[in-house]
């Protein structure tokens, strides 16, 4: 770790890591023995050309799909093949490519889905308790859509839906937040807002793991960059180093 934008320590702690993670679809190997380490407490980026297996990797790590072989760990604990709700409660929240919200629930209801405890008392309690509502409003205000609280989620704009998705993930209070293309399909002003949110949250101690195509954003935002090609890591390091690595250019240009 050479550059550090993190607010606390300069030492590198490994948060999410994989060893030989592999996922095949028929004859296609989407993730091919990926061994990756992400730095805890930092903003990590995962980049690579289209079809290099980033989203599949994301889905394997978050339990959406089961990897064929290999291991995934989080802060040393094995999380390979665990159901996604267990991984969520282990402290990893995620957003989806193209943004997934609950279209026919209100913005506020979207916020109240996240589960932080499975104790019976928590589960059976009214979801609209004053404490929860306050927390939700605070987060909605933070992303700037608190005035839409009672709108149905399908009625708000795509950019607002992206912010809602992020706020909804934050409701679960995850330590690590994985964002799949946070800048995909949104306008420049909103990209700036998302970037500053990520920076602020990181300063408060949240770890980020971001899959993104917008290189400008990746390079300005992240502390640590991992580059994927054909389902495995080809290069890692701080943005300045990765940017100038010949292997990265090769992967992107397909030489």
């Amino acid at each position: 770790m050479t550059e550090s934008a993190g607010s606390t320590a300069t030492d590198t702690r490994i948060g999410l890591a994989t060893e030989g993670l592999t996922k095949r679809y028929g004859g296609v190997t989407a993730v091919d023995g990926a061994s990756v380490q992400f730095h805890h407490g930092k903003v990590n980026a995962l980049i690579g050309p289209n079809g290099s297996g980033k989203t599949t990797f994301f889905n394997c790590v978050t339990g959406m799909i089961k990897p064929d072989s290999g291991r995934a760990t989080y802060l040393g604990d094995d999380i390979t093949g665990k159901a996604s709700h267990r991984i969520a409660r282990a402290g990893i929240g995620r957003s989806f490519q193209l943004c997934r919200i609950f279209p026919r629930m209100t913005v506020m209801e979207n916020m109240l889905v996240a589960v932080r405890s499975t104790s019976l008392r928590h589960v059976l309690a009214p979801s609209r308790s004053a404490g929860e509502l306050d927390r939700a409003r605070e987060l909605l205000a933070r992303v700037g859509i608190d005035h839409l609280e009672n709108s149905e989620a399908r009625d708000i704009s795509y950019g607002q839906q992206k912010l809602l998705e992020l706020a909804g993930v934050l409701m679960a209070d995850p330590e690590t937040i994985m964002l799949d293309e946070p800048a995909g399909g949104v306008n420049p002003a909103l990209i700036d807002r998302i970037a500053s949110l990520v920076r602020d949250l990181n300063a408060e101690g949240k770890t980020f793991l971001i899959v993104e195509h917008n290189m400008e954003l990746v390079m300005s935002l992240s502390d640590h960059v991992v580059v994927f090609d054909r389902g495995r890591q080809i290069c890692e390091g701080p943005p300045s180093v990765v940017q100038n690595d010949p292997r990265v250019l090769e992967a992107y240009l397909g030489i």
Partner: peptide
């Protein structure tokens, strides 16, 4: 009106998404 109910309705809308938010679907 319970949290349980909110989780169930989230399952109706998008089951994967609900699970990724920690709902034991």
């Amino acid at each position: 009106r319970s949290r349980f109910g909110t989780g169930l309705k989230a399952i109706r809308e998008d089951e994967d998404k609900a699970q990724s938010l920690g709902v034991p679907t």
